[in-house]
Amino acid sequence: MEEKQPVLELENVSVGYDSTAGMVQAVNDVSLKIYENTIVGLIGESGSGKSTLGNAIMHLLKNNAVLTNGTIKVMGKEVHSMNKNELRKFRWSQMSMVFQSAMNALNPVLTIEAQILDVYRSHYKNMSKKEARARARELMEIVSIDPTHLNSYPHELSGGMRQRVVIAIAIALDPKLVIMDEPTTALDVVVQRSILDKIKQIQKVKKFAILFISHDFSLVSELASKVAIMYAGRFIEVTDSKSLSHTDQHHPYTEGLINAIPHLTAEEVTITGIPGNPPNLVDLPSGCAYHPRCQFATERCKTERPVVHQIDNRDVECHLYDAVRKEVLES
């Protein structure tokens, strides 16, 4: 069977930041494939490298950041070997991103319409103003905003509406990949949910792939079909999201996250945090970076970086499963 071409393919990607304290290893050897019409969640605590990875995919890294290793392909094309002109055409039309706190990044002195027209006119030189306008209206309807708001300025819209505008701009040119970096974090639950439902609905029609970045575990596990869990720049687990509701055989960090969520309806309401603090990315712990906080850590975890084990639909990077794997191989 011939394999479908992934929309996004990450192979051993590492990104570092040059800083006065030394090299910050923000993304550390991650690999992942995303196919069309799927939503993949990316979760991890603050500072784990989520936005850095998103920016690397868009080839929009900050000046002091370097892609130190690996390849990033979108629709089979290597993003980091494109020249400026190719990139300009590729971005927004093939891949786009809703940036973290983007709803506050809309241009305050331009109307919503002007900001949307900008996107069309910069990519389609021959598009008439009339057509661009018609498209802008259509776009507003897709994200459920009354087109009269095309004449509004950002400050005249609520946070939820501004966020819908930002999403509208990201999908304006029908890209194949949309990266959404915490698109709903600043919003309250009702608005958040209505936007997520909207995203799902649009995706069903447009069939693009979404990389959905968040630190809200329950949200991502509901929205995405597959979830990558990032810790200290690495994917310590990539799992189908269904298995996240069961507590079977996950990475200890994933289990920690599952146990940290207060549940709305379950009878048992005890929750437990993960002890310890996030790691220092300039001076990463040896072996498995999670070992100082892991209750199962052994001597080996301190010295040896674990390999990835495949358990059912999960890739788990942890020594704990060496034994499990051995059992499976022997039986």
Partner: peptide, 13 residues
């Protein structure tokens, strides 16, 4: 709220 059992479609909220 994530994790809720009731499913109300809020797409057009």
């Amino acid at each position: 709220t994530p994790g809720s059992e009731s499913q109300i479609d809020l797409t057009n909220m």
